[in-house]
Design a protein around this nucleic acid. Structure first.
Lengths: 334, 334
DNA sequence: CTGAAAGCGCTTACAG
DNA sequence: CTGAAAGCGCTTACAG
């Protein structure tokens, strides 16, 4: 199966050594090789439809030009958009991407990391899940180049590219306040993940800064597992208050989708009665009956920068760079 | 870098041959190996944190346990959902997936195929674009195992897993007719891709079968490149007719998203004035102001079956299987 | 300007 | 029950 043509075949056909064929096809020792011989080798390679066996090459060079990408779920639009950007960026540097979804599950990510390392990936781009700290320390110990994307762990000293979630959230809430709202709720994930906590911290800080009421009943935390029901429940509770909330911040794209879906079924006036701001873009925002303001993550920078940092760390594995990108608040309601 | 422990290191440590270590770690020759020695080898492997070098193994066995997945765009929800299913199914058989996006571009897919073959993937799952016929014949000629997914080419005799697009479309239109609609439009892609033509054929056949008017002005074809504007334009034209249409079939998920977005801005009553049926699920359907009926592709079967067929063809490369799955019409408007 | 040879880390007939 | 040896298809010092 596959293709049987090897350097040896070309060498025999042309009547030269394998060494020479290798040099020519890799454009090495350019100056010193007889032009005619070189051309003959190239021609023969083409005629025989030669293709390098990357596996053999990798074994020898100890370089696979492969990046392992681990996200929570490749079918989540946030991650698939990111994957596409990473793919394109990697391609520019002749890298190929293998991917896996961890489902925020430590065991699964452990397994993926194992598989990827066995396959000798040159490095990992990793959206690590809760409690990954020791796993990450392991990677560091093994000197596997990697960069975290989207997520970060204050106790782990490694490269990452993420959003400045605190500021993003803070700015969104300040915007809400400046629109005259005073009873501002937030729905976020119940999670120890630092970037998600930062979103909640930003929300609370902004309220405090402006001396607004912060009620624990207004900060709803939902589990990922049954987020649709949980968000629905949270919304119901929020709307049921005697004095209802007048604004809400959705802490992630899937929460927003679930929340908007629920609100669709209600007669609430948006944004008049309820001002909504969502983290992340998503199709659902466009289709909601009225425009929704949202916090736009710089996805392209997120993806490109993570590839850039990874390749850098593959080269000389000393540098640790931590990047916190600023979000853009996209305002649809003037 | 990476991990330096090889079979040789274990062999030396334990004082046996590399051969034996290989046998033990691969659970070969189970019966014939001294239990104690075997255990010692296993223990040492664990202690040294040994990891197989898959690259070396692949070179020797001529098997990488890797599938190359080529789709039009991994960030399209249809493909990312499919990718996730393929990932999970592949994982069951110890396969890893490397992916690439072709953007419906022959040059790009050519390049991806090249890269993947050089990397010795065991096979390809491929959503081929327009005019891929000769490329596919090439693959067949080179005996590269592959299965098409989503797409198919009548002139190319190869395995594929796809939707029965003709029937899906036909059934959807029959449903529309049975709901009393008579002026039924469709927006689809301008494309030579057979599965897309089948959708249009189904639409026309159903109309003819029921002796309904088929106006060429009602079958709009849009280009992928600027689909949002194109769909908008098509919708405007359809709505501008003196006698407006009373139903529309959107021929793909992105068309539906664009179409619904446009309709959101109009005072049209859906479904009373305009009954909408969409190909594929998408978030936008849920968020539209009224429920939208849609043609649901059996994504799971699509993904699982394509992996199954591919692995089968990797084993014994003779069988060609062509699968046309039935769509389900999901009716939200009773 | 060119080639013989070693070696990357495995697997697997073959021999004992 | 175990091991020496060949070989997968490359790259790359080294020698000439």
């Amino acid at each position: 199966m596959k293709n049987k043509i090897s350097l040896k075949d070309i060498a025999e056909k042309v009547g030269v050594s394998v060494t020479l064929v290798s040099y020519v096809l890799n454009n090495k020792m350019e100056g010193r090789i007889n032009k005619e011989v070189a051309q003959k080798i190239r021609d023969t390679a083409k005629k025989l439809n030669y293709r390098t066996n990357q596996i053999a090459k990798s074994l020898k060079t100890n370089k696979t030009n492969t990046i392992g990408l681990i996200v929570a779920d490749i079918s989540n639009p946030f991650y698939s958009a990111l994957a596409r950007i990473i793919e394109d960026e990697a391609e520019k540097f002749n890298y190929t991407v293998i991917f896996g979804s961890s489902d925020e599950n430590l065991k699964k990510s452990e397994k993926l990391i194992d598989i990827f390392i066995n396959r000798q990936v040159d490095g990992l781009i990793y959206a690590a899940s809760e409690n990954s700290e020791s796993q990450l320390e392991d990677l560091i110990g093994q000197k596997i180049p990697f960069v975290l994307v989207d997520r970060y762990f204050p106790t782990v000293n490694c490269s990452y590219v993420a959003l400045d979630n605190y500021s993003a959230s803070y700015k969104a809430v300040e915007y809400i306040i400046q629109k005259g709202r005073r009873r501002i709720a937030m729905i976020g994930y119940k999670s120890a993940l630092h970037h998600l906590r930062d979103r909640k911290r930003g929300y609370i800080s902004a309220l405090k800064k402006h001396k607004l009421e912060t009620k624990s009943a207004w900060l709803k935390e939902v589990r990922r597992e049954d987020e649709i029901q949980q968000v629905e429940k949270a919304m119901m509770e929020l709307m049921a208050e005697k004095q209802p909330i007048d604004a809400i911040l959705f802490g992630a794209n899937r929460i927003a989708t679930a929340g908007l879906k629920y609100i669709s079924s209600l007669p609430v006036k948006v944004p008049d009665d309820l001002l909504i701001v969502s983290f992340d873009e998503s199709e659902s925002l466009d289709l909601f009956r009225s425009p929704i303001d949202y916090i736009k993550q710089p996805l392209r920078e997120l993806g490109e920068e993570s590839v850039r940092l990874l390749l850098q760390s593959i080269d000389k594995k000393t540098v640790i760079t931590q990047v916190n990108l600023q979000a853009e608040l996209v305002i649809k309601n003037k």
